[in-house]
Amino acid sequence: MKGASKHVIVAGGGVAGMEAAGSLAEMGYRVTLIEKGQDPGGHLLQWHALFPDRRPAEEVRGYLRKRLNHENISVITSTVVEKIRHHGHDVIVNLSGGTEERADAVIVATGFDLFDAHRKEEYGYGIYDNVITAAELEEMFSMGKVAKADGTLPSRVGFVHCVGSRDEKVSNNHCSKVCCVTAVKQAIEVRKMLPACEVFCFYMDMRMYGPYYEELYRESQEVHNINYIRGKVSEASVNISNRLVIKVEDTLAGRPLKMEVDLMVLMVGMEMSKQGAGLAVASGLETGVNRFLETGDHHYGNNVSRMKGVFYAGTCTAPMNITDTISHARAAVTETVRYLNGR
């Protein structure tokens, strides 16, 4: 056991952090996982079911929890990594609360924040009761009831794609990748829960980039009768009967379109997490124009930072889905081990 005494700190206990910690522990490294919340799990904790097969999120959560259940791993919760610095052969990590931890390497897995929908004021989030985010809809799925604010059932639901993504007006030019397929998945779930409810997706482009995504899109049309309208929603308002009115152009018909809906779901995108951004500034880690952490090389150094002994895993580097996040975390472990062995 060559690495038995080597210690790696993993900053962030989401999907990437849990997978990285599990892999390293399995290889015999001593791992400390620092999680800002009360429990590891990250955004996955709020998710009910996953695309493309709508399997329960609990299955993946279970897998990851089991990964953490290893004697080499110690988990520190309700704690944030504030600063990382290199010192001799060691990496020193400053934790919230003023303590310092020493490690041989650090994996940064601080993840993403969901876009704050208040910033897209014209969609009325926080102003109109029945404008919700995709995450809030997922919570409704978990509770087993999709309903309007007054408790009644919606007869028409609209999904607005690209909220906070691909939008210069909120300083996010990047695509968050997963929202398109999430919308398709959620649209199907709404239809399954409320068979009488009409569902519309307002999209700019349907980016079905992963395996079985396009098939899910096809199924949504073939089986679930989801309607797709190509156009960016410009604004929403409420009418006298307190229904939301969406303004959009049906770009394929070439004419402006107005539609009343009962519930409007905003497909909020992924942004660099505030905590990760603070860590980057404090530690001098480079960030890109999209504000995510900049990796050593976009093709073959995608887990490598420009600080010795510091590696990146998951959505702190770019938006990605769970599958890719787990692969990325494993790759980060490979890079970390290679570094530790070569030292």
Partner: peptide, 9 residues
């Protein structure tokens, strides 16, 4: 102002 519905409300 139609793009700042909080003002209208």
């Amino acid at each position: 102002t139609h793009l700042t519905p909080s003002v209208i409300s």
